[in-house]
């Protein structure tokens, strides 16, 4: 066996193993830093306006349609939630903090019951300026919502810039939402 072949037979598998290890290491590091979530799905709505809809109000608040979020005066969030959803209750405090900071949040109650919704808002607080009811879940399907809570970031032109599935946490707000608010302010 020539020295070159011997070196290659040792070196090539070693290089492959090192490259694979490095790849997994980067993946895990990014997952740990909340920079990458293997379960997150890219939303086809990113870069587009939400599809046409017109939903009635809920919990005594005004509902809204796609036209109402076509050109908001400043970037805003549309938050899909439901009184029957456990992570939504956990997220409520964070939404309250964001609303107190002056961020406009509109809610869409997904397949919810009016009485349950009123109770949910009474016990968890109401960070929403408007709440629409998607009783049948058809608007949710058109938006590509696959669970609650889901939060959509909408810029001044009414374009969806970010979708987050799951309860917003301090980490997510710091790493993604705050930079977006700065970028599209």
């Amino acid at each position: 066996m020539s020295p070159l072949r011997r070196r290659l037979m040792f070196g090539v598998p070693l290089a492959l193993a090192v490259a694979g290890g490095e790849g997994f290491y980067i993946l895990l590091r990014r997952m740990q830093a909340q920079d990458y979530d293997p379960h997150a799905l890219p939303s086809p709505l990113i870069g587009k306006r939400p599809p046409a809809f017109a939903l009635p109000g809920a919990a005594g608040m005004q509902g809204f349609s796609n036209a109402d979020i076509a050109a908001p005066p400043k970037p805003m969030l549309v938050n899909w939630f439901a009184s029957w959803c456990v992570p939504c209750a956990e997220e409520a405090a964070m939404l309250g903090k964001l609303a107190a900071r002056g961020l406009t949040i509109w809610g869409i109650a997904y397949e919810d019951d009016a009485a349950d919704l009123a109770r949910f808002l009474a016990s968890n607080g109401n960070p929403y300026k408007r709440i629409a009811a998607d009783q049948q879940g058809t608007t949710a399907i058109n938006w590509g919502v696959y669970g609650v809570p889901e939060t959509y970031f909408i810029d001044r032109n009414g374009i969806v810039r970010w979708r987050y599935a799951g309860a917003l946490t301090d980490d997510v707000v710091a790493s993604t939402l705050n930079p977006l608010l700065e970028k599209y302010a």
Partner: peptide, 8 residues
């Protein structure tokens, strides 16, 4: 379906 949920 793809328009709503992407190729996933």
């Amino acid at each position: 379906m793809v328009q709503r949920y992407g190729i996933f």
